[in-house]
Design a protein around this nucleic acid. Sequence first.
DNA 1: GTAGCTCAAACTGCATGCAATTCGAGCGCC
DNA 2: GGCGCTCGAATTGCATGCAGTTTGAGCTAC
Lengths: 252, 252
Amino acid sequence: MAGRADSSKTAESSDKVSVICRALRRAIIEQALEPGAKLPEDALGERFGVSRTIARHALGQLAAEGLVELRRNRIAVVATPSWQEARDAFDIRIELERLVVRQLAGKLTKAQIAELNAHVDAEDRARDGTDAVSIRLATEFHILLAHMTNSPILVRYVSEVAYRCCLTLSLYSRPHSSECAINEHRAIIAALAKGDVDKVMALMHSHLDSVATRALVAPSPQRGRDLLDILAPYADEATGEKVVKLTKAARR
Amino acid sequence: MAGRADSSKTAESSDKVSVICRALRRAIIEQALEPGAKLPEDALGERFGVSRTIARHALGQLAAEGLVELRRNRIAVVATPSWQEARDAFDIRIELERLVVRQLAGKLTKAQIAELNAHVDAEDRARDGTDAVSIRLATEFHILLAHMTNSPILVRYVSEVAYRCCLTLSLYSRPHSSECAINEHRAIIAALAKGDVDKVMALMHSHLDSVATRALVAPSPQRGRDLLDILAPYADEATGEKVVKLTKAARR
DNA sequence: GTAGCTCAAACTGCATGCAATTCGAGCGCC
DNA sequence: GGCGCTCGAATTGCATGCAGTTTGAGCTAC
């Protein structure tokens, strides 16, 4: 483990761009910006005190991470992953995080274990707060683990895919229940400290899998990608007043 | 498998930027641009008939993929992964590609199997050509597999990490031997067609692992990240004429 | 001949400006 | 009242320009 460089930032070019990226990333995963929210370059630039050029660059980076959708000549929007993409993201995440804990099991210092425990404590305290903050903290626990591998590539991929999953959670799982997740985090820390590779990998697997299935109970066409898809089943009953109202409300 | 969108391009915003990205990506993995090669924005812009703004944006994307290193106020250079980063990339790649074949085993259409075989045939024909082309084709085989999962996220990650590994190969393994790889590819196709999940996962694992170990035989300080490191052992013998010549030659 | 210094050229960081495209409010038609 | 159309405002795509930083070639001193 010794001898590994600590080059924390993988890309994140210049300061101004990365500041905007971080801010937007956080806003997105805390649901301050919902999926589908518009992100005009002008507005971003003005808000962060930079030119459009920089805001544009930041949007490009976030698009590369899958948090933002960029279509030519159109306003950038916060990504709205489909149900299938969400499931794929979780599948990938499971494999990546199993790799993380495999590398980490039995190799954590006491200081690192303390840091992990402190983080989970913070998660615990945040249970009273908003769901958004709980979700963010839970996600950051996983990213913290990834950091401890000292593998910049792994950190990047785990972060990215975790953020994507975060986005999904905010889309598909309305009543988020993070209580159980906290206990699962504690169990993972314990198994890591004990150095039981197989057990910690299994724990991580089931943890993530249960988060995924809690969220993605069913293909859930509600809240799906496209309004038209949502309304398709109603189309048969034609001109129902409710349907019309819905389109108007949603269009705004 | 049905019902999955075919949205091939994940980010790759506007045309001009993505054209440059693709060109550079290919140049890098074919070693036309060696690790460490300078990539000035002006020159790129001029070469591709666009402004610096666009070239810059493209470099940003490639940096996000890990193919390019971007340091503030400095000329962008083709990334030079450390040995440890290379090993990490392969570890991640193994997990991701095991996931690919797990999803694919027994689910490929005849047309897809034919496509895969055709690709391997192309690899076979390319054995006479340059190493660079062989490496590229071998890499593209894996990306082709990823595409068949119809999972854009998986495609993106596999592509990225495969390109990174390509870069590594060009750094650390001078005499590339791709002959065996071709047979391994054929074996994987066969196992996929047969639908033997466990076998194909094991095959993919050993295939990638052997590629990695063939390349990364030892931490190999030669050809490493920094000239100074390479020369350190020679420093003791002081003022040897040879050493001086080396520095001059490399500096150009 | 070597080491250190200086300064101009090269390059990046960023903002601004213009053309092309999209968006959406308002208007006429059914 | 609802639907489609049209045109101005909003927005993106991209190039260019200016300021600050790095680079390295040439010069000087030893």
